[in-house]
Amino acid sequence: MTQSLDRIAIVGAGLSGLACARRLCRAGGKVQLFDKARGPGGRMSTRRVETPLGTVGFDHGAQFFTARGDSFRAEVARWVSEGLAATWPAAGPEAWVGLPGMNAPVKALAEGHSVAWNTVVEALIRDAEGWRLKTPEGLSGPFDAVVLALPAEQAAALLAPHDEALTARAAASRTAPCWTVMAAFAERLPVASDTLEEDGILGWAARNSAKPGRGGPEAWVLQASPDWSREHLEDPADTVGDALFAAFATRLSAPLPEPVIRQVHRWRYARSATGSEQALWSETARLGCCGDWLSGPRVECAWDSGEALARLIINARGNDRSAGPGLGSSQ
């Protein structure tokens, strides 16, 4: 296998994967990203739906983010200067959202990168020339290294044939699911607050149309609690929608009007556990992992993880092999 670390494949083009890609490219790396989604967003996705009242946008993944560390605060400041983010006081004094949708910052980060959208990576294959990625369209590569910017469970499945230590760390992490309902109404609902905190079945509810930069008809995002989502993970979508609507109506103490549109989405991997590392890198296998599952369930953690892994790879490029192979981590 070549000792170069110039050609790098990143599986997952969400915030963590794109943060890693940007730093690697700035250091001279040649990066190719792969993502099974139709477009950028990941768990910062925004879904736009055509209705009789016009187009409605729903932030159906992460509802907002905070910025506490210097690196991410600087990045958010850049997003603000480019009109990609704004504060959302209804969710708290430190809450931010993307403009005009939550996916806007991720979409901007993806521009200029080579991303194969709608591409499922089924397996990693290592040969004398490096790593190749097996997809339904065939093999891609060779690459000198592979980064997995995926939920822990998906990363573990790809890692299993190749690196026992990385696989064990990914397999030890568990990501909570989340059922989400998106609904638009022809009239404003009788609730004063634009956000509702966890209460039984409901883990979160937000008047999406009240976020900065939004508009259009009354639009709500309802997210089930992690425990309820886990218990009802395989329920039919309509059954889940009815249950969340009933819980929402109970919270409002009023029947809900018929929605103009209602859609249900299941996030099988929504909220990561809290870990103690930012990123993982195996010099022996030339495999790395980044994502919020390594440090904590926050958007900022995903960003920090991607940057941390890029630094590990850049350092590996600059070091000779006298240090010996091994598993590195950033904490």
Rank of each mutant, 00 (worst) to 15 (best):
E94S: 07
V49N: 00
M182G: 08
R26L: 12
T87D: 01
G57P: 08
P325V: 04
D70L: 06
P255E: 02
P52N: 06
A90F: 13
F248K: 05
S4F: 07
T250N: 11
V11Y: 14
P236E: 13
A308D: 08
C301Q: 06
W117V: 14
P325I: 05
L312K: 11
F65A: 01
W204K: 02
V120E: 11
S114L: 14
S225I: 00
F245Y: 11
A171C: 10
N315I: 07
N118P: 00
A165C: 02
S305K: 10
W303Y: 15
E111I: 06
R321Q: 11
A145S: 13
L256V: 03
G318N: 12
L166I: 07
W293A: 06
D304L: 15
R311C: 15
A116G: 04
P93F: 01
L244G: 05
N103Y: 09
E300Y: 02
S173P: 00
Q223D: 00
W117T: 14
F64H: 10
R251F: 10
A108W: 04
G69M: 04
N315R: 15
A310C: 15
G296E: 01
H265A: 01
G98S: 07
A21Y: 06
D144W: 01
K30H: 06
L84C: 08
P52M: 02
V264Y: 14
D199C: 14
L327H: 10
A19R: 09
S140T: 07
I201R: 03
V264H: 14
H60W: 06
P297M: 09
A165F: 04
R268W: 00
S330D: 07
A19Q: 08
C301N: 09
V56D: 03
K107M: 06
A176E: 13
T175K: 00
W96G: 06
E258V: 13
P52Q: 05
V120T: 13
L5K: 10
C178H: 00
A155K: 02
E283S: 15
I314H: 10
A285G: 11
T46V: 03
E129T: 03
P217C: 15
F34Y: 08
A90G: 07
H232T: 05
R47V: 04
W79Q: 04
L15F: 10
Q331R: 15
E164T: 08
D238T: 09
T250W: 01
A67E: 04
K211Q: 15
A149S: 13
R271I: 11
S276V: 11
T55E: 14
D235F: 07
G101K: 07
P52E: 05
A13G: 09
G141I: 13
A9Q: 07
P161W: 12
G291R: 08
G318D: 10
L244V: 10
V181Q: 06
C25H: 11
Q223C: 00
P40S: 12
Q223V: 00
R23T: 14
P236F: 04
D144C: 03
A205S: 13
G291H: 07
P177Q: 03
R23C: 14
G138R: 10
S71I: 11
R38Q: 12
R271A: 05
A156M: 03
A86H: 01
Y269T: 02
A285D: 04
E122W: 03
L244K: 05
L148E: 00
R26I: 09
